[in-house]
Design a protein around this nucleic acid. Structure first.
Length: 813
DNA sequence: CGGGAACTGAT
DNA sequence: CATCAGTTCCC
């Protein structure tokens, strides 16, 4: 006969209870238990039929199990042990009511001692007479008492073992006893031990749970900051895992959220950066899963969805706009261009809004008028829009809104007094929605129906129309002579304020389509308008000005043109970025230079933070190119290198350190005088960050430049601050911070400069002479760049022989 | 049965 | 002594 476990207890999710919590909290469920079908631990005696006794007790989760001080409590439990009878037919035993009672730390030794005594008593009752003595109490009853030395031995053993017992995990040990010839259950079968049961309340076994995330989508290139709220975790033992499964449910990709223990806030929140997706160039959003994972036991939380989006930038939208099919001029012929006779009473948009020639060769037919309203829809809302409106209605509208009909006609001198057409019952009107995106402009086509029948009278509308037609044809002629498109544009200058459905003005569109000459012509024409500033600085639906679009597309010429026309670089887009922010983010030093020199800008405004709480220095430090030049420009324009970001109080130097970017960090320190001791909201200096991330090279740089290795998160005088050494991610880092020099361990990188490293003396002298000869130093500066030593140029600039110093440094590095 | 607060020990 | 993580108790 042998004993076998047919249902193991569930390993996780069960909570041990203290005595004070009472005995009734439900029993350990079985491993396969679920909500609908509950199971419980169960064992079976095989190869035997008849009565049997089964004893269950708790043991440790070790290779050689010891008795555990926790107690089993429940229906058939006594003294921490559960005893049941089974048989004679059904030889299985299930345990539906096994609770685990948590011994307090204080009592571990005492309880353990009791366990050992009970065990030895049990043993002696079987083996008869082993370490006990028989005494009688006052009433003469037999008491079994341990000899003093045995008691002592057990006590010592209990005390010493108490320390090493893990109170957060137990296993069930089942022992079956079969009856002997006397019917006493003394025949012991081999004990069997269950899977481990972890206390769900123990910090290192608690259920992992993601409660909330501040965002669940990010770009495929990763690096997006996410704030995750969770149930209690341990900061050194937790990961944020991103994973993706294929159709078959196989795990095909895994990435880890990027954070250090210092980013775990009080056990309940993690601030991390998303990992890069396996394919940075996805075209469609990809859904993946995020979960918490405990490093020590690989337990995971339930997964939450996360979506990787195609690397989206403002450029994305611009690209889309660029991909639209190119218009063709014949698209604009319209239906009325042949001069077809309109039918009375049906004055629709197809009656061409351009002056047409009559039989006498003068342009004086149905004309187009544009009304510039603050908000025309207030007056021409349905029922008037896109409809024929009678002259009496029209007159009423005109009269009531006369003061708003500012520039009543196209092609007329803007300074003319407001012109209100005199209307008769023979006039009709069609108000088109065209150009109404912004609700500011309507085209108003007024047609005198009588005209078509009986020829024109000397009507003011007609005389204006005639003027307009003449100017148009003259312009066209002048254009033919000069090829100067501005001849045509100037007649349409008022239309430059019209936006398309994306909110883009003609200036935006010209920049988007890289039409530099067009942009220049348009700007010249716009310059003649009184409201030129509002047109140049118009924003589209992303709140971008034409200048912003030019910066976004790295279009230096367009930037220069727009700035010349007085474009304002400080207008904010929907992310709170002004043009200077965008230039910094792009690392486009040339554009940045022009923006900074555009006019007298207010440093306070230039140096403000965007909606992500980042300033220009932050954005430039994060840029993937042109960083050094941009940082230099910012510095020389008095931007604040030590500005803290709004979200966490980090400076640009903190960011550079986080990115493990030696060059940028070096540049910030040596060329921009970044404060080495700048502290985040939590009090961390850049050295703290480097230490916690285990970035030895950066830490070496910081230390070499004078960072305080004893910087503390709390003010001087207080003893309780955290120093970089407290956060050191490795022993190597600790040594570094304690001033122990690391063994020189050169990285083998590209070998392309091996020739330079091996120059013989003569060649080297010649090279120095050549490069030093250029007085501005541009030659050896270029060499420094190529050797990736750009960050030290300040140090060697004043050297007598800069090239030589540079080469020396190169050898060393 | 789960949430959470009070208490305590370690640093 | 303050603070944080871990333990115990209460509801």
């Amino acid at each position: 006969p042998y004993l076998e476990i047919i249902e193991n207890p569930k390993s996780r999710g069960f909570r041990f209870r203290y005595t004070c919590e009472g005995p009734s909290h439900g029993g350990i469920p079985g491993g396969s238990s679920d909500k609908n079908k509950k199971t419980f631990p169960a064992v079976k005696i095989c190869n035997y039929q008849g009565y049997a006794r089964i004893v269950v007790q708790l043991v440790t989760n070790e290779e050689n199990p010891r008795l555990h001080p926790h107690s089993l409590v429940g229906k058939q439990c006594q003294n921490g042990i559960c005893t049941v009878q089974c048989g004679p037919k059904d030889m299985t035993a299930t345990f539906p009511n096994l609770g685990i009672q948590h011994v307090t730390k204080k009592n571990v030794a005492t309880i353990l001692e009791e366990r050992y005594i009970a065990a030895e008593m049990q043993l002696s009752s079987i083996n008869d007479g082993f370490p006990q003595e028989v005494q009688r109490n006052i009433k003469g009853e037999i008491l079994i008492v341990f000899r003093h030395e045995d008691r002592k031995r057990i006590s010592v053993k209990a005390t010493s073992e108490a320390k090493s017992i893990d109170l957060s995990v137990v296993r069930l040990m089942f022992i079956a006893y079969l009856p002997d010839s006397n019917g006493a259950f003394t025949i012991m079968l081999k004990p069997v031990i269950s899977d481990a049961i972890f206390d769900s309340k123990a910090p290192n076994a608690a259920t992992l749970k993601i409660c909330r995330m501040d965002c669940n989508a990010g770009s495929a290139s990763g690096g997006d900051e996410v704030y995750l709220l969770c149930d209690k975790v341990q900061k050194d033992d937790i990961q944020v895992v991103f994973s993706e499964e294929d159709m078959q449910g196989n795990n095909i990709w895994e990435g880890y959220g990027n954070f250090s223990p210092t980013d775990v806030h009080r056990q309940f929140a993690i601030v991390f950066r998303t990992p890069q997706y396996r394919d940075v160039d996805i075209k469609q959003p990809v859904n993946v899963q995020v979960q918490l994972r405990r490093k020590s036991d690989h337990e995971v939380s339930e997964a939450k969805p996360f979506t990787y989006l195609p690397n989206k930038s403002d450029l994305e939208l611009i690209d889309r706009k660029r991909r639209k099919p190119m218009p063709d001029f014949v698209d604009h012929l319209g239906n009325g261009n042949t001069g077809a006779e309109p039918t009375e009473g049906t004055y629709g948009p197809h009656y061409a809004p351009q002056a047409q020639q009559n039989k006498n060769g003068t342009g004086e037919l149905g004309s187009v008028f544009f009304l510039f309203y603050d908000n025309i829809t207030n007056h021409f809302n349905p029922p008037y829009l896109d409809k024929y409106v009678s002259s009496s209605t029209l007159t009423r509208i005109f009269k009531s809104n006369a003061y708003k009909c500012l520039h009543a006609t196209q092609g007329l001198n803007l300074n003319l007094p407001l012109y209100i057409p005199k209307l008769t019952k023979h006039h009709g009107i069609y108000i088109s929605r065209t150009g109404l995106c912004k609700g500011s402009i309507a085209s108003l086509w007024i047609v005198e129906s009588r005209y078509f029948k009986s020829g024109a009278k000397n009507n003011s509308i007609l005389s204006l129309t005639k003027k307009w037609a003449e100017r148009n044809s003259t312009a066209l002629h002048d254009y033919s002579i000069t090829g100067d498109v501005r001849m045509l544009l100037v007649l349409q200058r008022h239309l430059t304020s019209i936006r398309d459905h994306s909110g883009d003005s003609v200036l935006h569109v010209a920049v988007i389509h890289d039409q530099l000459e067009v942009l220049s012509s348009l700007l010249d024409v716009v310059a003649t308008l009184d409201n030129k500033q509002s047109i140049v600085d118009a924003i589209n639906k992303q709140k971008q000005t034409a200048l912003q679009v030019a910066v976004l597309t790295d279009n230096v010429e367009a930037v220069i043109d727009l700035i010349k026309m007085g474009a304002n670089p400080l207008i904010l887009d929907s992310y709170g970025n002004h043009s200077i922010h965008v230039a910094c983010r792009h690392g486009n030093a040339s554009i940045l230079y022009h923006l900074l020199n555009s006019k007298q800008l207010d440093i306070m405004q230039m140096d403000m933070k965007n909606h992500d709480g980042l300033g220009c220095f932050h954005l430039a430090a994060k840029a993937s190119q042109g960083t050094r030049q941009c940082l230099g420009l910012l510095k020389s324009n008095n931007f604040n290198v030590n500005m803290a970001d709004t979200k966490s109080g980090r400076t640009a130097l903190h960011l550079a350190v986080e990115m493990d970017n030696l060059v940028v960090a070096g540049c910030l320190i040596s060329e921009c005088d970044a404060d080495m001791e700048a502290a985040t909201y939590e009090g961390y200096t850049p050295l703290h960050v480097a230490a916690s991330l285990g970035l030895c090279e950066i830490a070496t740089l910081l230390l070499a430049c004078g960072a305080d290795p004893d910087a503390s998160t709390s003010p001087p005088g207080s003893e309780n601050g955290i120093t970089p050494a407290d956060l050191a991610a490795s022993d190597q880092m600790r040594d570094l911070l304690n001033g122990i020099k690391l063994p020189f361990n050169p990285k083998i990188t590209q070998n392309i400069f091996s020739d330079i490293a091996q120059l013989d003396e003569i060649l080297r002298l010649k090279l120095c002479k050549l490069l030093n000869a250029e007085r501005t130093g541009s030659d050896w500066l270029a060499l420094a760049e190529r050797l990736s030593l750009g960050s030290i140029v300040t140090f060697i600039r004043h050297s007598e022989n800069p090239t030589n110093t540079l080469l020396d440094n190169y050898m060393v590095s």
